[in-house]
Design a protein around this nucleic acid. Structure first.
Lengths: 149, 149
DNA sequence: GTTGAAATTTACAGTTG
DNA sequence: CAACTGTAAATTTCAAC
């Protein structure tokens, strides 16, 4: 892992459709050399996967909601149970288990507030282990990248 | 945009390296038909872009931090200024402008708490327009996808 | 890491339902 | 108008150096 690898990663995390040739010109290598490095970066897991980023608005899922959740009981079994549910819920994009006041932070995308209401019914009210939750509606997705470098 | 397009999008948002042939078998079309649809989905913006997801831990940026920020003054100019700074700050992965108690929610990745401390110095303390901010450290990234469908 | 050939994948015609 | 067939081009892959 040298500076050339980092250069390649920086390009790929913004645009995974770049050809090896385009990358090779930017980093100063031959196209096959770039391919060789890409293969290794995928195998070692530095590149976890390559994905298409879809447009929520163009697909009618225009609403982003942020929820802080505090559990009633924080035993290992309860935590694992909640994590599993969040992983399985399609509208949950991100779920973080955190220090601080709240136990979990969720980022959801939904079509409308009605869909969010259904989510809270299913996962918060019908779930005896939720102590409290606090909802915030996103007015502007100022930045939403997964860039690491 | 029909159900076949949605099938293609669902596959692509999890793995953008799938060939047109592999997709064609899953959705029941010929490879060229899939390519044609992919081209249209990119042109219309349903697919915004394709990116490599890097491994924060393998790249020594193992720490994820969530920050709620409350501004002192919420004028248009101050808001835009803050948004611009967050877009430019490399360790800020995500920034949301929200309703509710806080004005902004940030998700950062840093190498260590020292790097976070430097970030707060540069952006919160040397910035007279920050009223308060609340930090939470992520113990478990339970789910982190950008899946829309 | 580079060069060069083979295989896969994509792009673009023309054709059909 | 959208999907299939065949051909040409580009890209990736793999060998040898």
């Amino acid at each position: 892992m040298d500076s050339k690898d980092l250069d390649i990663l920086r390009l790929m995390q913004r645009n995974a459709r770049l050809t090896a040739e385009a990358i090779s010109q930017d980093v100063g290598l031959s196209p096959p050399a770039v391919q060789k490095r890409l293969k290794k970066l995928r195998e070692t897991g530095a590149i976890e996967r390559e994905i298409a980023v879809l447009s929520p608005s163009k697909l009618g899922r225009d609403m982003t909601i942020i929820v802080e959740v505090i559990l009633e009981r924080e035993s290992r079994a309860h935590l694992d149970e909640f994590k599993r549910k969040m992983r399985d819920a399609p509208c949950v994009q991100q779920c973080y288990y955190t220090t601080g006041e709240a136990d979990f932070l969720l980022i959801l995308t939904v079509q409308d507030i009605k869909e969010y209401e259904a989510f809270t019914q299913a996962h918060f009210f019908d779930e005896s282990n939720i102590s409290r939750f606090k909802t915030a509606v996103v007015m502007d997705r100022v930045k939403a990248s997964l860039d690491v470098l």
